[in-house]
Write a protein that binds this DNA or RNA. Structure first.
Ligand SMILES: [Mg+2]
Length: 330
DNA sequence: CCTTGTTTAAAGGATG
DNA sequence: CATCCTTTAAACAAGG
């Protein structure tokens, strides 16, 4: 019994595919996402076999990251300097190792159907698998957390994900374990990311089925846009999809990787009220490319002001702004 | 230059 | 046997 707890396997090749090794690494992280170099580290740390021939297997690993839809890139925020992106598991990839083998999956996960054709798509492309099972570590982790990911995405089951907990100005005042790749901070496009986008305790789940966030806008810019959102059900995935407008404000990376987020295209921005307003007071959102039933989403601003988007002719208004973005999940 | 990421091609094993 | 999944190699672009 060499190393109880550690994985080791001596110099033998561990019974895990690159996909399972990578999934393990990602799931082991507090934020459920890792830069490439940390995936390497994770594997080398606990599997001595992979301390040799690094050139070979790391090339293979990178191939797996790119080639397989179950791995997606999460762009770095401005407050996270560094080289590449973060790698995370696709929110819909489910439990890829249901069959109990970590060497070979039953089916390969594909995020997009064949092509993005306009006609009807066979439900083949994406499905949520029911899961069962418990294994011995580290497989157990893989299975359990697959459940977590899916329950987070499941329509109507949107649990209070990030416990409303607030830190001030970039100080991570909450355990990283509660963060995840699809926090609003990671979804908003880079040019709209101030260093401080945090879940707001007070405003958080004001409505059933909603998640609230406070977006703190600094005087230096970012988040100058009038925010508005739509929520609809994606016709393909059947999942709730959040719609933010204008298009430039959602990280393009998510859409291109098949993550069920949608933008409202060229829908005009809605003037944002200076004072918090009830949902009903919001103007009806412009028609968008959203495919399902569309529901307005609450957007309100704390007393303060907005800076106009760059290129806009509107004058900048002084003060700080704390818009609340409510993301409807149904 | 090195790291990160995408892509094509081929080969071997598992599955049915 | 055909098909699917994984591994490996390799060319290449982009960026720090
Ligand atoms: Mg990928």
């Amino acid at each position: 019994m060499p190393r109880p707890g550690k994985d080791s396997y001596g110099n033998e090749k561990p019974p895990y595919s690159y996909i399972s090794l990578t999934a393990m690494a990602i799931q082991s992280s507090g934020e459920k996402m890792l830069p490439l170099s940390d995936i390497y580290k994770f594997i080398m740390d606990r599997f001595p076999f992979y301390r040799q021939n690094t050139q070979r297997w790391q090339n293979s690993l990178r191939h797996n990251l790119s080639f397989n839809d179950c791995f997606i890139k999460i762009p770095r925020r401005p407050d996270q300097p560094g080289k590449g992106s973060f790698w995370a598991l696709h929110p819909m990839c489910g439990d890829m190792f249901e069959n109990g083998s970590f060497l070979r999956r039953r089916k390969r996960f594909k995020s997009m159907p064949r092509q993005q054709k306009s006609h009807v798509v066979a439900a083949d492309g994406i499905q949520v698998k029911p899961m069962s099972h418990m294994d011995a570590p580290p497989s157990a982790l893989l299975h359990e957390q697959a459940k977590m990911r899916l329950s987070q995405m499941a329509p109507g089951t949107h649990a209070p994900l990030p416990p409303p907990h607030c830190g001030l100005l970039g100080v991570p005042a909450q355990p990283v374990t509660t963060k995840h790749p699809f926090n609003i901070e990671n979804i908003i496009a880079p040019e709209c990311k101030p260093a401080s986008i945090l879940p707001h305790p007070g405003l958080a789940p004001t409505l059933p089925g909603h998640c609230g966030y406070t977006v703190c806008v600094t005087s230096t810019g970012a988040c100058t846009w009038p925010v508005h959102g739509l929520c609809s059900t994606d016709s393909i995935t059947g999942l709730p999809s959040m719609v933010l407008g204008p298009v430039a404000h959602v990280s393009r990376d998510f859409i291109s990787q098949g993550v069920p987020l949608k933008t409202s295209g060229n829908a005009p921005a809605i003037p944002v009220p200076i004072k918090p307003s009830p949902l009903s007071a919001l103007p009806p959102p412009a028609v968008s490319q959203a495919s399902g039933p569309v529901v307005p989403v609450a957007v309100s601003l704390a007393p303060g002001s907005l800076t106009p988007p760059s290129g806009s002719s509107s004058p900048a208004v002084p003060t700080t702004v704390a818009p609340t973005l409510a993301i409807a999940t149904r």
